[in-house]
Design a protein around this nucleic acid. Structure first.
Lengths: 226, 226
DNA sequence: GTAAGCAAGATTGTTGAACAATCTTGGCGT
DNA sequence: ACGCCAAGATTGTTCAACAATCTTGCTTAC
């Protein structure tokens, strides 16, 4: 049995409203944390035994995760943890480059939203100070999620969440994880300041340049651009 | 058996790669066409017999459709065709008001895209000339889908498709279906002309006003605004 | 007469087993 | 080394069963 699956069965086992949804959540977490790296095959028999659920219920969870593109289903071959490639990275940034600046430009900023973003920026600075790449990555994702949430739309929040989950898969697929985020800590801070000053258009334009650069850097690192 | 289900079993029955996906497609179609109106209960036993599939496979289809918000699942109560309310309408327009103008503003316009839009506008005019409300509604949805596709993003296309499907449910839920779209035919045409002229910012701003008005009109009609 | 409470029936949630279809693996022969 | 074929393993789908929950209709008390 895969070591990453050990102990899943022990975690809170009270009767769950929807067992299928619970199984999906467990797998989503394990995948997001990198315990189940991209490309890993998720065997029905192994997993159903490890999780203590029937194959049917597990397949329901697979259907949920496949709908979220967390997992790829190949007919008669099985289910694999999604392994995003260069095209997926480009698609991720197409989405981000559209909804993030749009939320900055047209979203309304509720009281406290900017303060919350400042807290996130401080968290990123603290992580940088102690050299925590993971901490910076988390803070970065948190900030960009907060930007999209200016839209006030749950659907866009969900789309952004899906996109960021795919970003985590991209990072997990990389052999070495250099510090992409260090460069962006202060750029994020400047962005928040611009929004606070009401310079929406400038912030949106800057954010688009920012995302262009980030995409380019990432594509170079995964070898899609020489 | 519900009359809307008659004949489903007869439609092309060759072995399907994924029966669950096929069942989901059948139901999605029936719901989108209004044969299964919002609020309809989808009984597992009835449907599994009508479609000639097992309850397990049907439940897999339900999981897919629930993930698309086409259907609402209430634990131990069953599955119902989604019945969007005023809040859902507001959410729909939050999304549209963000991604449509953003695609107009920042998308790149591939050769032929504008001509394709002109064709759609002509289709809308023809539908209006012969008084076909359904024809105008279809053309309208097609045009706005084309606007979002300027983004070049499959994810945003999918989100727009989901949103428009929800819009159809809203219309199906209305007792009377007045002509919302007649007013917008020429406004759509003007929008395409602005894009053709390179007046992106003006087009985006106009589109936002347009969507504001449409949301307001719809909310009034469903009685959410006095 | 109405409302609360309860029992019987129906529906959903989950499991286990079974079988067909397809894929993978290993050995075989050329 | 290469292709081919049979055996085993895995997935796709169905069926049957049972527990948990909901619905319905009846009874009973006030």
């Amino acid at each position: 049995m895969n070591a990453a699956l050990q102990g899943i069965a022990d975690a809170g086992h009270a009767t769950h409203a929807h067992t299928g949804a619970w199984v999906a959540a467990q797998l989503r977490q394990r995948i997001s944390d990198g315990l189940l790296p991209p490309g890993t095959k998720l065997s029905e028999q192994t997993l159903s035994e490890a999780l203590g659920v029937s194959r049917n219920t597990l397949r329901e969870a697979f259907t949920v995760l496949a709908g979220e593109s967390v997992v790829q289903r190949i007919p008669n071959r099985g289910v694999f943890v999604a392994a995003p490639g260069a095209d997926d990275v480009r698609e991720i940034y197409r989405v981000r480059r559209l909804i993030e600046p749009a939320a900055v430009l047209w979203g309304d900023v509720p009281a406290g939203a900017l303060d919350a973003m400042d807290v996130i920026v401080d968290k990123a600075r603290a992580a940088r100070a102690e050299g925590s790449v993971a901490g910076m990555a988390d803070a970065n994702q948190e900030l960009h999620k907060a930007l999209v949430s200016l839209s006030g739309s749950a659907s866009l929040d969900a789309l952004m969440e899906k996109v960021l989950a795919e970003m985590r898969l991209v990072f997990h697929a990389m052999a070495t994880t250099p510090d992409f985020h260090g460069h962006y800590v202060e750029r994020n801070a400047a962005l928040v300041a611009q929004i606070r000053n009401g310079q929406r258009e400038e912030a949106a334009a800057e954010l688009r340049r920012y995302l262009d650069g980030a995409e380019h850097e990432l594509l170079i690192h995964i070898g899609a651009i020489p």
